[in-house]
Design a protein around this nucleic acid. Structure first.
Lengths: 239, 239
DNA sequence: CTTTTTATAGTCGTGGTGACTATTAAGAGG
DNA sequence: CCTCTTAATAGTCACCACGACTATAAAAAG
């Protein structure tokens, strides 16, 4: 593409769409906004917005994340670019190219619609469909990506607060994957992976619940998981 | 982002950039074009171009791939969206948002600059840097992605012709990863993975070379690798 | 016909992991 | 106070995938 001077291109609108995921009451939840106008009026949609002239898509995504969640500090949150959706007819009004992101939140404060969001709410992942535009696909892609990255990265701690128990960490895997895991084996695997989690110095334990209090851990320095923590293979596969 | 009607956004140019990879003489090669104008005049760059008004980024990428390589049929080639690069200053002339793709080719015909490419050539991966714009990073990201996907997908066959030997398939892994692999173990692993490769019906063998002729295989129906084929861990890691 | 080269077959030991049992430490309820 | 329940933690055992290695087969080269 040697010459930019002789092109004739239409203007594209560039937006970001966010699949903000969190764990609430043991279930996967998504941050959604209700659309006010056509098209898809009254339908839920992923939060998002235009990329401003002096922003990168990542910057715009983090700005939107702060606006929609109402959180003061979103700098520590895990934000990951998924892919870009550019079908010409994905928005009936105009040509919109959208860069999609997945964001992972530890706790789930009810969104205090600080931005231009009409109405933002957490909805259970399974109740989300059908969403506006191609957001069903974006959300499904986000789920797939997160589920896959749990296998070979330390991403799971992004769903947990700064201090957490191994039981909470295991619930992240079980909720995202939709499978049950053996507790002793999960524990053995996590502790055997250097840098995945590190114990809280003082022998702090989480009390208050029933049963033996659990030890608290923090996220470690490692980012990758070698060897990976593979999800149990689906039943009904042919050999 | 409730209202599109009240926005004021600048026009963005949306382009695709392609990291076209192939294996030539046992080495990883990249398809590059030489820039004629400023900026970066005389430097090598990844092929790419504008997304047309009625195209998706994927369609534009495949069109550019056909134009730059001069290949008749690019429909069977593996094309994978990497990520989108949107730093405001990545092109000094204007605001350009680029969707990057990685393309994998089996053989390497010298490009017959059919498109608007000034001069297109295969260059060894290691000799590519420095490229124009942020293409060094895009190329490195493409390499990382391909290397990672070799571990848990059947992507390696995308580098091979329709019929290939296990030795050729192993060379894909060794070249991309930059490591040596034990031949019997690699063979055992590939054959033990159902759907990765399937033997060519007639006991066809590749003759002509020195040594015992190798059996020929085709790519199987499987797309994922369970369990994965992990690359040997780098030496010098702390326990 | 020997040497070289490469593909293919097989062996052995280890470590990661699934499945499982046992123990410990808290709260709940009588 | 004692027992039941609940959940975390500790430990065992067998299997199997994989790394390391040796052996054999089938071609070309000398």
């Amino acid at each position: 593409m040697p010459g930019y001077d002789k092109y004739a291109h239409e203007p594209f609108a560039v937006t970001v769409d966010l699949a903000v995921l969190t764990l609430r009451a043991g279930g996967l939840h998504v941050l959604l906004v209700e659309r006010g106008q056509e098209p898809y009026a009254g339908r839920w949609a992923l939060p998002g917005g235009f990329v401003l002239p002096d922003e990168s898509a990542e910057t715009a995504a983090r700005r939107e994340l702060a606006e929609e969640t109402g959180l003061k500090d979103v700098s520590g949150l895990h934000l990951e670019q998924l892919r870009t959706y550019s079908e010409p007819d994905r928005d009936p009004r105009m040509r919109v190219v959208s860069v999609a992101f997945a964001a992972l939140l530890p706790d789930a404060p009810e969104p205090t619609g600080g931005g231009d969001a009409a109405q933002a709410r957490w909805l259970p992942y399974d109740d989300a469909k059908p969403l506006a535009f191609d957001h069903d696909r974006i959300l499904a892609d986000a789920h797939d990506r997160v589920g896959a990255k749990l296998e070979y990265t330390c991403l799971a701690t992004a769903f947990c607060p700064t201090e957490f128990t191994l039981g909470e960490l295991q619930q992240v895997y079980e909720t995202v994957w939709g499978t049950g895991l053996d507790r002793p084996n999960f524990r053995r695997k996590v502790l055997a992976t250097p840098g995945f989690v590190e114990p809280v110095p003082r022998g702090a334990r989480l009390t208050g619940g029933r049963g033996k209090p659990a030890a608290l851990y923090r996220a470690g320095a490692a980012t990758a998981l070698h060897p990976p923590l593979l999800r149990p293979p689906r039943e009904g596969r042919s050999a």
